[in-house]
């Protein structure tokens, strides 16, 4: 059973020679014929499949297209060619705490973040206590989020996110932040998700983490797939081309 099928994806970015952010500048540009831009193909002809319950790592140099690919999977960016089909509920963790409003209390923010992650109000109500227990923030439920420390912020965001119960998770190096205790909680939770049969796509620079949790890995370079297969082999290939 495949969870994600990526067919023929290409993505180009338009990089204007001069960034024009206003109507005024654009009009001037059209008149003066200065509307040239560079085309940068961040991804070219990407094809692969991810099986349900699999954890796929995506590695590559900076600028190889990893984040772009993940954003396309998250449906934040639209590809220029090709299609992506996904089964089940997909939650993207490109950043933790998306939609958090600093003027509102932690409790209200959990409801907002929960609904962004696809949880219904009753679901959040049900898991409310578990979320705050996991985050160890039971005494701070009614505090405004702007008064939270960055560690508390992360814990609250992560606690809410992991209770969202998606079928597929897209993770972009978010778990590289936080203290050791937090990191340990993250990796424990990921293991738990894997045992539950969830599909995970994991973009990272840390070969350690990738080796630890991913069965297969995808290596991108210059927007193209260089290697796709068992993690050990692909990491070796990555080391080779990095020389």
């Amino acid at each position: 059973m495949t969870a994600i099928v990526v067919e023929n994806i290409s993505k180009k970015f338009r990089i204007p020679h001069e960034k024009k952010r206003t109507l005024f500048h654009n009009l001037i540009g059209i008149i003066k014929r200065q509307m040239s831009y560079e085309e940068f193909w961040a991804l070219k002809d990407i094809n692969f499949e991810i099986k349900a319950g699999e954890t796929l790592g995506i590695i590559g140099k900076n600028g190889s297209g990893k984040s772009t690919l993940l954003k396309i999977l998250a449906r934040v960016l639209y590809p220029d060619t090709g299609t992506v089909s996904q089964e089940g509920k997909v939650a993207s963790f490109l950043e933790l705490g998306v939609g958090f409003q600093s003027e509102l209390t932690a409790e209200e923010n959990v409801y907002i973040y929960g609904s962004i992650l696809g949880m219904t109000r009753s679901e959040v109500l049900q898991k409310y206590d578990q979320i705050f227990d996991f985050a160890e923030l039971n005494n701070f439920k009614n505090m405004k989020l702007k008064n939270y420390s960055s560690g508390m912020y992360l814990r609250l965001a992560f606690a809410t996110a992991i209770h969202a119960n998606p079928d597929t998770m897209l993770i972009d190096e978010v778990f590289a932040v936080g203290d050791t205790a937090f990191q340990k909680k993250c990796s424990d939770k990921i293991t738990e998700f894997q045992n539950q049969g969830k599909t995970i796509v994991f973009v990272s620079h840390s070969m350690e983490s990738v080796k630890q949790i991913c069965q297969r890995t995808l290596l991108l370079s210059g927007g193209k797939i260089v290697s796709l297969g068992p993690t050990e082999n692909v990491i070796k290939k990555y080391m080779e081309i990095s020389q």
Partner: peptide, 11 residues
């Protein structure tokens, strides 16, 4: 005014 809800998550 809500950039995160555009660039980091799908809705």
């Amino acid at each position: 005014s809500k950039p995160n809800l555009v660039t980091k998550v799908y809705l």
